[in-house]
Write a protein that binds this DNA or RNA. Structure first.
Lengths: 224, 224
DNA sequence: GGGCCCATGGGGAGTGCCACCCACATCGCC
DNA sequence: GGCGATGTGGGTGGCACTCCCCATGGGCCC
């Protein structure tokens, strides 16, 4: 991939122009990296990569996880289905288990937090371009350790998002409804509502409704 | 302010190192602007400005609205109460009315969205340093027009919502901390934490922590 | 000085939430 | 034809949350 002579060609997608500009400055400072295209949302990124006339020949796509129109996750899913997809590196504000696993599921090779130093971003780009799955800044993190451990044991990823019913319950919880109200709304027993809530909390590794509420906002189940 | 000879001295606070790095590269490229300090959260920014030994002599503080520990808004409130406070410019991801007014209330001279171009950020810095209240990218915005209109008519800003202490408590609640944890964090009794929570719920007409969490996300006390 | 807001505490009652245990019916899939 | 996933339901216990009541002291404004 990308011989030692020509720099790797990068598409950069983030909805904040300032962030884009900053990341671009960081990457272009590297002799072997070159940002050849920018996108302000996921749809734009996909369109740029699909356009046969543009002939971008992108080696690496860096996508912000959360963007308008098409999120980075959705865009990654589309991009990884192309004939000769570029390597995908997800950029995220959130040190969040769900996002991380979702990113791997949609075909990303790397997941980098915006809180890391610029050096780490450059490292992640290099690792991704070498074909190594750069998982996280700081592989000592429990999240990654557990993930690698599961990989080693041959287990497949069960991060399995939520079931449709669980999504419904989470949405109502995050909207501030009590278990009793939700039970009435869905015409099931209070116990079943609580059961769903427990399962979701356990699945996502969360403790209470406030975390659930932030999750619901993040994934777009509700508006804040 | 800042003679034409020496560049203006800037403190930059944002919890995402990558964003900090990018903004710094943008600003340092200007001959008359110089980032002399960085902070990863509001508390750090305040501490740096307060420290008499550091002698930073900061002319302009650029604060991200949403940061851990102390938000940019809380930090701005503290900073503007110092003896010789620097000019304050708020940096925000959110095109949000509440946020915008809150920023003005806590003493900020400018409010810039992260979605603007780097040129606009530089312009905002220059305007703020000249003492002009640079209100928003694009002063034709209805938000700003209405605000200026109300100022002209001598109206005061809409009611002050929450007290600083209440803001702190809400932030911690929305981050998922229990009353006991918050009490330890703020070194007050559990009863007082609960008292603040009750008052806030009553003030905002809300019922529980999930509504409070959405509120905190809306006004930018926390990120989802 | 008197009033008001703010921050700090406490008691008690009722309810909700959350974590552990248990079970059974259905459906699809291999 | 069993096996896992999904949805449904129950019980118990402990703690947290929410809503009432009470109070004191400091600061600010008229």
């Amino acid at each position: 991939m990308t011989g030692s002579g020509t720099p790797a060609r990068i598409l950069l997608a983030d909805d904040h122009a300032l962030v884009r500009r900053g990341v671009r400055l960081i990457l272009d400072a590297q002799p072997d990296l070159e940002v050849v295209a920018e996108a302000g949302d996921g749809a734009e990124a996909v369109a740029l990569l699909r356009d046969p006339t543009s002939d971008l020949a992108v080696d690496l796509a860096i996508l912000d996880v959360a963007m308008p129109r098409l999120t980075g996750l959705q865009a990654a899913r589309e991009i990884s289905r192309m004939r000769t997809p570029p390597t995908i590196l997800m950029l995220s504000m959130h040190d969040n288990e769900q996002y991380f696993f979702e990113s791997l599921k949609v075909g990303a090779s790397g997941y980098v937090l915006k809180s890391v130093a610029d050096r780490d971003l450059v490292d992640a780009c290099h690792a991704a371009l070498r074909g190594e799955p750069f998982l996280y800044p700081g592989s000592e993190r429990r999240l990654v350790r557990d993930y690698l451990e599961r990989l080693r044991r041959g287990e497949r990823l069960p991060p399995a998002a939520l079931t449709p019913r669980e999504d419904e319950v989470v949405k109502l919880i995050a909207e501030g409804h009590s278990s009793r109200e939700i039970a009435r709304e869905l015409t099931i027993s209070v116990r079943t509502v609580e059961r769903h809530r427990e399962n979701v909390l356990q699945k996502l590794g969360m403790r209470d409704r406030t975390e659930l509420t932030r999750y619901a906002v993040r994934v777009g189940l509700i508006d804040p």
